[in-house]
Amino acid sequence: MTYPMIRQTRRVTIAGAALVGLCLSSGAFADNDDLITTASTAGTTAYIVGKNVDDDDFAQAHDFADTQAVALKREAATGGGENIDSLAALLGEDDASDLGAWMQANYAELYGRDAGEQNPVDRIVAAR
């Protein structure tokens, strides 16, 4: 084995051991809400990193609202969170906390029984 291959193998081994350690330590103390938040964070990050935000942001906001529907609904109830921050960026909002507060104040309009199947982005844009 050449020296660069040995170095690369060592790095992969160390990274793998660290990942296993993190998974075991966080899994031992995680409850369901922690796992949901972690999955939500991973999903949001993967979405933002995997997309070219310069493309049609409105269409991306629709797609994001569909893929992160459960997290957005939960964060709208509390008035903020990383998914609302991401949605605000896609919608070109200047202040994500303002959007979060607005979503909380208008939660019934966005997610209530009368909201129907319409994408929440359409309801946000129509009402704001």
Results as ranks from 00 to 15, higher is better:
Gly16Gln: 00
Glu82Val: 14
Arg123Val: 09
Leu24Lys: 00
Thr2Ile: 05
Asp55Met: 10
Ala39Arg: 04
Gln118Cys: 10
Ala61Arg: 06
Gly100Pro: 15
Ala42Ser: 02
Phe58Ser: 02
His62Ile: 10
Asp54Arg: 04
Ala77Gln: 06
Tyr47Met: 02
Asp85Arg: 15
Leu90Val: 01
Glu109Lys: 14
Gly79Tyr: 07
Ile36Pro: 00
Ala65Gly: 00
Thr37Ile: 04
Leu110His: 06
His62Phe: 12
Gly16Leu: 01
Asp66Leu: 14
Gly81Tyr: 03
Met103Ser: 10
Gln118Met: 15
Glu93Leu: 11
Gln68Trp: 02
Ile36Trp: 00
Ala105Gln: 11
Phe29Glu: 08
Leu22Asp: 10
Gly116Leu: 02
Met1His: 12
Leu90Cys: 09
Glu82His: 11
Ile14Gly: 04
Thr41Trp: 03
Ala69Gln: 09
Ile14Leu: 07
Val121Cys: 03
Lys73Ser: 09
Gln118Tyr: 07
Asp66Ala: 15
Ala18Ile: 11
Arg123Ser: 07
Leu19Asp: 10
Ala18Pro: 01
Tyr111Glu: 12
Lys51Arg: 10
Cys23Met: 14
Thr44His: 01
Asn52Val: 01
Asp95Gly: 11
Ala115Thr: 00
Ala101Lys: 15
Tyr47Cys: 03
Ser25Asn: 07
Ala71Leu: 09
Leu87His: 04
Ser25Gln: 07
Thr44Pro: 00
Tyr3Cys: 14
Ala88Asp: 11
Glu82Thr: 14
Ala96Ile: 00
Ala69Lys: 10
Asp34Gln: 01
Ala71Val: 12
Gln8Leu: 14
Ala46Phe: 00
Met103Glu: 03
Gln118Phe: 12
Asp63Trp: 00
Ala17Trp: 03
Asp54Ser: 12
Ala42Thr: 09
Lys73Cys: 08
Asp31Val: 07
Gly100Asp: 12
Pro120Ala: 12
Ile14Gln: 07
Asp56Val: 01
Gly79Ile: 11
Ser86Ile: 07
Leu19Phe: 10
Glu93Arg: 13
Ala96Tyr: 05
Gly50His: 00
Glu93Gly: 09
Leu22Trp: 06
Asp114Gly: 13
Asp122Asn: 14
Ala127Glu: 13
Leu99Cys: 03
Ala39Val: 06
Phe29Asn: 05
Glu82Ile: 15
Asp56Met: 01
Val49Ile: 02
Asn106Gly: 11
Glu93Trp: 11
Ser86Ala: 15
Ala126Glu: 05
Asn83Gln: 14
Leu99Gln: 03
Asp55Tyr: 02
Gly16Met: 02
Ser26Asn: 13
Leu19Met: 08
Gln60Asn: 04
Asp31Phe: 08
Ala88Glu: 13
Asp56Ala: 02
Ala59Ser: 10
Ser40Asn: 06
Glu82Gln: 14
Leu35Gln: 02
Gly116Trp: 10
Leu72Met: 05
